[in-house]
Design a protein around this nucleic acid. Structure first.
Lengths: 195, 195
DNA sequence: AGCCACTGTTGACCGACGGTTGATAAGACT
DNA sequence: AGTCTTATCAACCGTCGGTCAACAGTGGCT
């Protein structure tokens, strides 16, 4: 079998397997058996188990990072709203993959790094959008940062119950951010930066 | 050496080791070497690595559960405020241990179960305190649930920067909960249940 | 004294894991 | 025909969590 073909087959198999089993639950020997090949051949295509796992995530995650990127020059609130919307859309489509992603953050350092990076970039963007170029007040920084956790919590709750529409959830999330910023004493910045 | 003595020594060693190394980073052989005993003897005192790990957590975690328990009959807002305060105090004392605990949730199912249980109980208590006996509106349930995530995020940010006093953080957290509940449309319940 | 039962202790082992090595067979190019 | 590349694998390595069979010391019983 040709390289690209084989690699593609292994990736698709991995997407399936990791969608229903956690990282630790699957051994490379099992995966190879499932693919009908030997373990060294699997290692011939992917240098390590983590690399293989990340490759199976890779496509979807890259797509996510791209989708939540705001249009350049968009006003802050609009950019944020767009990002949240795109994020919810992505999660809505992938559900199980999203939960697996969050769960695997503890066992695969690269996943944790990836999530941390997205959180960092997004919270920086929020703080910047409020007009604090650098050195935001500690509470504002904490509010932006913690709200991203809030979002993950709310999304997990949503996936579990599915009793809100996506639009309702989006409005609720943005409202909660507003509430957190008010609690952080950034109400003025909110008003002046909204358009 | 006597049983209780040896067991106690191993527990104390475990508390130290797991405070600075994650669950996966430590092998039972290493731990035994550190304790100056053989691996089978370690297994003589603890039936498995997870049991050993949980035993080292046990003390601290039990203490936490006890501390955040509100006084029976206390008004909801006061009970919550007390719980948050006690929680922050506990985290403040343990810092690194708290972070290791959150990180180990991904690798040790029991830890995840433990955290989930605390979150469930606390969010239920919040919802009850607002006067929704059962069947709260989805947004209110989501707000309570997600706010607990918010709290973990804010605490991690706090531990990283340490540029807020514990009281400021506590007020900020409670304020953010209020903001989230407003965003959830529970403003009325807030006013009527506050005393 | 001799014996037994118990208990704290361990060297040596097991199966499974992630990962590597050395060799084989089949094309493709010269 | 001969050489080089490449897809492929049996057999191996070190380490892991966990187990087994046996040893040595101690206290009570006869």
């Amino acid at each position: 079998m040709q390289v690209d073909e084989r690699r593609q087959q292994l990736l698709e198999l991995g997407v399936d397997l990791f969608a229903s089993h956690s990282f630790a639950e699957l051994s490379m020997a099992q995966i190879a058996r499932e693919a009908g090949i030997s373990k060294p051949l699997l290692y011939h295509y992917f240098p390590s188990k983590r690399d293989y796992f990340l490759a199976t995530l890779g496509e979807g995650v890259q797509q996510l990072a791209q989708r939540i990127e705001p249009a350049p020059g968009a006003p802050p609130l609009e950019a944020l709203s767009h990002g949240v919307g795109a994020f919810l859309e992505w999660v809505d489509e992938r559900d199980l993959a999203y939960r697996k992603l969050l769960a695997s953050a503890g066992e695969v350092p690269e996943v944790k790094a990836l999530i941390d990076e997205v959180r960092d970039r997004t919270s920086d963007r929020i703080v910047d959008g409020l007009g604090y170029a650098d050195d935001p007040p500690p509470k504002v920084r904490a509010a932006a940062r913690a709200w991203l956790w809030f979002m993950d919590g709310a999304i997990l709750d949503w996936l579990e119950h599915r009793d809100l529409s996506r639009d309702e959830l989006q409005d609720f999330l943005l409202g909660a951010l507003g509430g957190a910023l008010v609690a952080a004493g950034a109400a003025e910045a909110l008003n002046t930066s909204d358009q």
